[in-house]
Deep mutational scan, measured.
Amino acid sequence: MQGVVKVNSALNMRSGPGSNYGVIGTLRNNDKVEIIKEVDGAYEIRFNGKVGYASKSYITIVN
């Protein structure tokens, strides 16, 4: 499943599905991501070869 990031500035990509996990990357508006699955209000995603988590509130599914 594919998604597009929709933010005003940037969205943190984290090592786990919550803000208490470390930041492993930054997503920008209109970045395209692969959605692997939904976990606790976040999506597990793949972006630029990395797998991490981002809030589903800022990712629009575009299948």
Rank of each mutant, 00 (worst) to 15 (best):
I45G: 00
Y43P: 00
V23A: 05
R28L: 11
G52W: 02
K50W: 06
K37W: 05
Q2R: 11
I35D: 01
G22F: 12
V62N: 07
S9C: 15
N63D: 12
Y21W: 09
S19T: 12
T26E: 08
R28Y: 14
I45C: 04
V62K: 06
S9T: 13
Y21D: 14
K37V: 04
Y21A: 15
N48D: 11
N30T: 04
G41Q: 09
A42V: 13
V4N: 03
R14G: 04
Y43Q: 00
S15M: 06
K56A: 10
V7G: 09
N48L: 09
K56D: 02
G25Q: 11
I24T: 06
V39K: 07
E38F: 04
S19C: 15
T26S: 08
N29K: 07
I45V: 09
V5N: 01
G3W: 03
I45E: 00
M13S: 02
G52F: 03
V4E: 05
M13R: 01
G3F: 03
T60D: 10
Y21R: 05
D40A: 12
G52I: 02
F47I: 06
Y53K: 01
G52V: 02
V62G: 06
S57H: 14
G18C: 09
G18H: 08
N20L: 08
G25I: 09
V51T: 11
G49N: 09
N12W: 12
N12V: 15
A54T: 09
V23W: 04
A10I: 15
S57Y: 14
I36E: 02
L27T: 01
F47R: 03
R46S: 10
S9P: 05
T60W: 14
K6R: 13
G18D: 10
A10R: 13
V4C: 12
I35N: 00
K56R: 07
S55E: 15
A54P: 01
E34A: 08
N30Q: 08
V4G: 01
V33K: 00
D40T: 07
L11R: 06
G49S: 06
G18T: 11
S57F: 14
I61P: 09
A10Q: 13
V33T: 01
V62T: 11
K6S: 10
V33I: 06
Y43A: 00
E38V: 09
A42E: 14
K50Q: 12
N8C: 15
I24P: 01
K37Y: 05
R14N: 10
N20F: 10
Y43M: 03
G16W: 03
Y43E: 00
G41S: 09
Y43K: 00
G22M: 14
S55D: 15
M1L: 13
V62C: 13
G41I: 05
T60E: 13
A54R: 01
S15H: 05
N30H: 08
N20P: 06
D40S: 10
V33H: 01
Y58A: 11
Y58T: 05
Y43V: 02
E38T: 05
V5T: 02
R14A: 07
N29R: 08
G3Y: 03
K56N: 05
R28N: 11
T26D: 03
S55K: 09
S9D: 13
V62H: 08
T60S: 12
Y53P: 00
Y53M: 02
N20K: 12
V39S: 05
G16R: 05
N30D: 10
R46Q: 08
L11D: 02
G52L: 02
I24F: 02
Y58K: 08
N29S: 07
G41W: 11
R28T: 08
G49F: 04
S19P: 15
Y21V: 04
E44N: 07
V23L: 05
S9W: 11
I36Y: 05
R14V: 11
A10T: 15
G22A: 15
Y53A: 01
G22I: 14
N63F: 11
F47T: 03
A42Q: 15
I61W: 04
N8E: 14
N30M: 09
V33G: 00
S9Y: 13
I45Y: 00
N20W: 12
G18F: 04
E34S: 09
G22T: 15
K32A: 09
M1F: 11
A54E: 01
G41M: 08
N48F: 08
P17Y: 05
P17R: 04
K50R: 10
G3S: 02
R28G: 07
G3A: 06
S55C: 14
I61G: 03
N48M: 12
Q2G: 06
Y43S: 00
G25N: 06
S55P: 14
G25T: 11
G18I: 02
L11V: 15
G18R: 05
M1V: 12
N20H: 13
I24S: 04
M1I: 13
V51M: 08
N29M: 08
K56L: 05
Y53G: 00
V39I: 11
N30S: 06
K6G: 05
G41T: 08
R46F: 11
L11K: 11
N48S: 07
N29Q: 07
D31E: 06
M13L: 13
N48Y: 06
S57Q: 15
S19K: 14
S15N: 09
T60Q: 14
F47S: 05
N20E: 14
S19M: 13
N12C: 15
N20G: 11
K50M: 14
T60L: 13
N29E: 06
I24L: 06
G25W: 09
G41A: 07
G16Y: 03
V62W: 08
S57P: 08
K56V: 10
P17L: 08
I59G: 00
K32M: 13
K37T: 10
V62Y: 09
Y58S: 09
V51I: 13
I36W: 04
Y53Q: 01
I24C: 06
I59C: 02
R46I: 13
E44T: 02
P17I: 08
Y53V: 02
T26C: 13
T26W: 08
V33R: 00
E34I: 12
V39A: 06
E38W: 04
S15C: 12
V23Y: 05
G16E: 06
G49P: 00
Y53W: 14
Y53N: 01
K56W: 03
E44L: 13
A10M: 13
P17A: 06
A10P: 13
Y43G: 00
V23G: 02
G41L: 07
I59V: 07
M1G: 06
N29H: 09
K50V: 13
R46G: 04
G25C: 15
S57L: 14
N20D: 12
G18N: 12
N8Y: 11
L27A: 02
I45L: 08
V33C: 05
E34H: 10
G49W: 03
T60N: 10
I45H: 00
S19E: 15
G3R: 01
I24E: 03
E44F: 13
L27C: 03
